[in-house]
Every structure is written in structure tokens, then in C-alpha cells.
Design a binder for these strands. Structure first.
Lengths: 191, 191
DNA sequence: CGATTCTTTGAAAACAGTCAATCTGTGTGG
DNA sequence: CCACACAGATTGACTGTTTTCAAAGAATCG
């Protein structure tokens, strides 16, 4: 199971065997059942999590009491609340499993110790961040240029098999509109 | 002038003097006049840019021919089109000075050479990315929970002096609505 | 000044949200 | 195996927010 992480790292960098092993040894396996919380509002995020299997949603609850999904995390993604993790502040967000899941987690102290010394692992995380930033930029581009309907069809086109994985109301939340509206979009398109 | 960059790096990490100097030596100073382009659509982004002075806007043009600003960059920010830079693809975005500006740039080859060896500079860029990701997350949170009016007043509250720096129509574009609507928001509030 | 460029205003239209009711499918317990 | 409960999806009428378009009013710069 830890091989999912090992392979992911090796796709980007080639650290010395001992260094990689040291890192992997610090990672703790943890399982989550569907609907279980990895992080709840007001808690402190003390770990970074690599998702080996399953799917999580990263969301908050707005003033009207409505859940808004900022992101999903699936296999081969790192997930955590950076703000809480880095700034040691209570989380404004929830992270919840939407499928049974397997993750590997590492705490701040262990991660800091490793990043203080390992060139390759710094490169690895740097590269991950770069890729996420590119994806986020594209996402903002879509949000700023597409109608609700186009957002949905575009997302569906690029992630045909992910849309099967989560309930529609979560997809609607992630795309920035109401479940009712998504339902109407689908009715229009007779999909 | 290069001290702005040097000081910025030293806020985050403490690289060996020689290594830092080697990095700074690779950085080339470049000046841009207001309205000059640092990068245009279809061009390849070959450099990363540290803004020492001035302000840039990062935007694209949507299907209707309307400019949509994804981001601004000001002093002490790195700016570039990562997608184009990393994937060697033609840029979908434009980066344009909105004030006279001074930047330091470094090309891909030089940057790669340095990041292949420097632990501290990898840490530096990793930390920068982490901070940007936190900011982006907050931004998406606001976009998903605030009305147009709240978006404006919140942005204004947190960036009171930046709103003076750019024309209103750019701010409107960045916040995701039309200049006319921003004008009406301001009229309502009698600000 | 004179000419752009930016901002404001107003009326009509489009887009998406709200609310409430109904429909569908699935899993559970009797 | 059926009945029921419950979560999720759909539908329709109504409302509200933001856009669009067009025109007029400020502001800025050479």
C-alpha cells in the first residue's frame, strides 16, 4: 500500500534510497470509512495526508449554513489544511471521506525534520505545489469564463469517471451552484 | 534593487552565502513601463519573474472578447505562467504592467541548475507555493460564500491601499463581475 | 484644452437561487 | 420478501442578483 506513495515520489524525483525509506517509515497508515472526518472545523491540522485509496471532500459551511466544497482529493493527492497546518490556527474547513479510504499521514515535526535535510523531497513537494497551482489557475479561468452549464459539461468532459464517484449535490457544490440548478442543466441536455 | 529579492529569500531560508550569490547573479534586471507586456498570449513563458517594484495583471480574454483578470502581482511576488513555463506550451494568458515596474528574471535552464542543487532555494520556493495555495484557498472560499457586494467590501478591507493602485474596471474583473456592477455597489454604499 | 480612457446611470433581460412538493432508488428491519 | 424510511434527484413557480446595452458624465494625459 505504501508503494502508491513511493511510486508517486519516484515519478518526480530520485532520492537516495535511505532518505526515501526514512521518509516512508514516518508515514502512518490510517483508514477512514465513508463519511468519517479526517479534519473537522475548529480542530488543528497537525498532519499532511497522502491519499492512497478513496476520495475526500474539503468543504466549509457558509453563513447561511450551506456546505460549500472547495476541493476533492483522490488517489495520489496530498490533502490537508495548509493554513491550519502552517499557521497553527483552528481549521475553518472540514475534510471528510466520501468513500472508504486509505491514507498515509505524517506529522509536522517529522515532516519538518525531513524537509530540513532532503533536497529531493523538497523538490518533490515543490513540484507538487507547482502542479496544483497550474490546476487552480485553470479552474479560476473556467469559473471566470464559463456559464453554469458550460462548467458542468467541461468538468464532465475532463473527468468523465469522477462524476460517477460522488453524488450530484456535491458536484454542484464544488462547481459553485445549487443541486437544483445542476439537475436542471442535466434535464436540458437530456443526459 | 536586487536586495529586495535577497531580503525576501532571507525571510524564509538561510542559504550558504555563495549559493545565494550564485542565484542572485543569475537574476537579470528588467524594467517595464506601464502597459508593457511581460508575456503575451501564444508566447512561451521562458522565465520566472520576481517583482521588485510595480504591479502587473495576469489575465486572459474569454470567448466574448472580454478581459478577465486572474491575478495581480506586486512587490515581493513571483510571477510567471507556470503552465507555459513547465509544460513548454504557448501561453493562454497575458501578463501586463499596470504601473512602471522593475523585475528580476531568471530563465528555465539557470533556475533548474540551481534547484538541482540548492536545498535552501527549494525550501524557499516550496514555502512560497504553500503561501500562495493558502491565499488561493481563501479566495475560493470567498468566491463561494460572498455576494458581489461583500466580495468588494471584504477585498477593500483587507487591501485598502491596493484598491487605489488599479483602475476600478480591473478590480471588477479580478473580483469576477462587470465594471458597471462595481460602480453600482459603490453608489449603494455611498463610499 | 481636446481626446481618450474610465466611471456612472438606468431600463430591460438573462441567469441562477429559493422554496416546496414530488419522485426515485437503495438499504434495512420485520 | 415486502414495507418503510431516508437520502438524493427532479420539477415548477417565483424571486433576486448580476449582466447587457446604450448613453452621458468625470477624470486624466499629452
Amino acid at each position: 500500500m505504501i508503494d502508491t506513495l513511493k511510486n508517486h515520489i519516484l515519478k518526480f524525483v530520485s532520492p537516495p534510497k535511505s532518505e526515501l525509506q526514512e521518509f516512508l517509515n514516518k508515514m502512518q497508515l490510517k483508514r477512514y470509512n465513508n463519511k468519517e472526518y479526517l479534519l473537522k472545523e475548529q480542530q488543528y491540522c497537525t498532519h499532511q495526508y497522502f491519499i492512497s485509496k478513496g476520495c475526500f471532500r474539503f468543504y466549509f459551511i457558509n453563513q447561511k449554513g450551506i456546505e460549500k466544497i472547495i476541493n476533492f482529493g483522490i488517489e495520489d493527492w496530498w490533502i490537508s489544511n495548509f493554513d491550519s497546518f502552517i499557521n497553527k490556527s483552528p481549521s475553518e474547513y472540514n475534510i471528510q471521506a466520501v468513500e472508504d479510504a486509505v491514507v498515509f499521514k505524517i506529522n509536522k515535526q517529522d515532516l519538518s525534520a525531513i524537509l530540513a535535510n532532503s533536497l529531493e523531497l523538497n523538490q518533490y513537494f515543490r513540484m507538487i505545489h507547482e502542479r496544483v497551482r497550474i490546476a487552480d489557475q485553470k479552474r479560476i479561468q473556467y469559473m471566470y469564463s464559463l456559464s453554469g452549464e458550460e462548467l458542468y459539461t467541461t468538468f464532465r468532459e475532463y473527468n468523465p469517471h469522477f462524476v460517477q464517484r460522488v453524488p450530484q449535490y456535491m458536484l454542484a457544490s464544488y462547481l459553485g451552484f445549487t443541486p437544483e440548478f445542476l439537475s436542471k442543466i442535466r434535464a436540458n441536455k437530456k443526459v
